[in-house]
Computed example of a mutant assay.
Amino acid sequence: MSGDYPYEYYQFFIKFNEGDYYTCHDLLEDMWMEDKGNLFLKGLLQMSVALYHYSYGNLKGTRIMMKVAHEYLREYRPEHWGLDLEQVIGFIEQCLSAIPDGIDKVPYSEISSLPALPPLFLYLND
């Protein structure tokens, strides 16, 4: 598929690059609900949920969702729907390495003590 994507997919890129992962979840979930067999969308959805979880200190949820996203998205490498999945997979792996082990939850008041996750800016290649 080249260049003719659902409107929500384009909006996902904008919101992801703005760091609005909650909205990313909503955009992708609407698309996924119409095609529940689409594991590419589900992988991006899980990655967005993971980043949202990290933003409020839910490390266990972050780990689980990142691992699931990795599992789903690796099947679509190297590129799918104009997205460089090698870059995305590398990002997920870096995030999994950065998340502190042995901690499931961090109080909101201590979130600033968590290591920053690596940056990722998503772009359509077509």
Rank of each mutant, 00 (worst) to 15 (best):
Y5S: 09
Y5T: 12
Y52M: 02
K60M: 07
N125S: 14
L28H: 06
F12H: 04
L41H: 11
Y52F: 10
K105H: 09
E79W: 09
P118D: 03
C24T: 03
L44E: 01
F16Y: 06
W81K: 14
D84S: 08
L73I: 08
H25M: 10
F40P: 05
M47C: 01
Y5F: 14
L41T: 10
E75F: 14
M33I: 07
P100M: 02
G57P: 07
D30N: 15
N38R: 04
E93G: 05
K42Y: 09
C95H: 02
V88E: 00
R63V: 14
S55V: 09
E71P: 01
E29F: 01
V68M: 06
Q11A: 03
N125M: 15
W32S: 05
L44D: 00
L59G: 03
E71F: 00
F16A: 02
S48V: 03
I14F: 11
L28T: 09
D101W: 09
S112E: 13
Q46F: 04
L114G: 01
S48N: 08
Q11L: 15
K36I: 04
M65G: 02
D104K: 10
P119Y: 13
P100W: 02
H70G: 03
G102D: 05
P78W: 00
G102K: 10
L122K: 06
P115L: 09
Y56L: 06
L117M: 10
H80R: 10
G90L: 04
Y9I: 07
V68E: 15
G57R: 05
P78N: 10
